[in-house]
């Protein structure tokens, strides 16, 4: 083990090694290159605007998440009577009619996950600025989870889209997506953008700074 004698320190980063990897094709260049020799993409050791992008997308996602919860998700018209269901209202209704399993899934996918993301993303961004080495591993894991799970939040939107295209029986029953469906889809999209914008290498830097 060549490194066995090296005292414990933060993991070596490309930047610390004086290298920069191309984000697009992965070719490693020495620091100082601004364009990739292989694919011509712009090279940057750290995205200087990463956190700004995260905060901006997160803010927009949060903004549209509010109407997504206040406005009706589904507009059901049955025999001339129109009922509107918000996200939480739908869950409560499901509980009332005894479909606890479905209620749990909807609650988890439509409420828990988005709200969790809403907290997780700022947490990660804040921790970059105020590093805390003890949670470095947790933050990496959290980032992975947020990035992976973001797309699954779209399940709710898909349900609405499928229902409203299938249940169109004229005056008997018809389901239309409410305003909240649009907002929710946007919210999911924006939080995913926020997650993608997060430059996970910043977590390393923060750890390193913390270790030094």
């Amino acid at each position: 083990m060549a490194n066995a004698g090296i005292p414990r320190r933060a993991p070596l980063t490309a930047r610390a090694a004086g290298l920069v990897a191309c984000h697009e094709c992965g070719r490693v260049h020495p620091l100082g290159f601004t364009t990739c020799l292989r694919c011509g993409a712009a090279l940057s050791s750290r995205d200087p605007f990463s956190l700004q992008k995260v905060w901006a997308w997160w803010l927009v996602g949060l903004m549209v998440y509010i109407p997504a919860n206040l406005y009706p998700m589904l507009v059901t018209t049955s025999l001339g009577k129109t009922s509107e269901n918000t996200l939480l209202g739908g869950v409560i209704e499901l509980v009332h009619i005894g479909s606890y399993g479905v209620a749990g899934i909807v609650f988890f996918a439509s409420i828990m996950i988005p709200i969790g993301k809403m907290f997780a993303i700022p947490y990660l961004a804040i921790k970059v600025a105020r590093p805390d080495s003890r949670s470095a591993h947790l933050r990496h894991w959290l980032f992975e989870v947020v990035e992976f799970i973001g797309r699954w939040s779209m399940v709710d939107v898909f349900v609405v889209a499928i229902l409203s295209s299938l249940v169109q029986l004229g005056g008997v029953v018809s389901i239309k997506p409410g305003f909240a469906a649009l907002c929710f889809a946007l919210s999911v999209a924006f939080t995913m953008l926020a997650a993608i914008s997060f430059d996970s290498r910043l977590i390393w830097d923060a750890d390193k700074g913390n270790a030094e």
Binding site: P48, F49, Q52, K53, A56, L59, V60
Partner: peptide, 14 residues
């Protein structure tokens, strides 16, 4: 100059 253009998105949303 340090501000990202992405900030235009929340601004627009606002």
């Amino acid at each position: 100059r340090n501000l990202s253009v992405v900030w235009l998105v929340p601004l627009l949303a606002l």
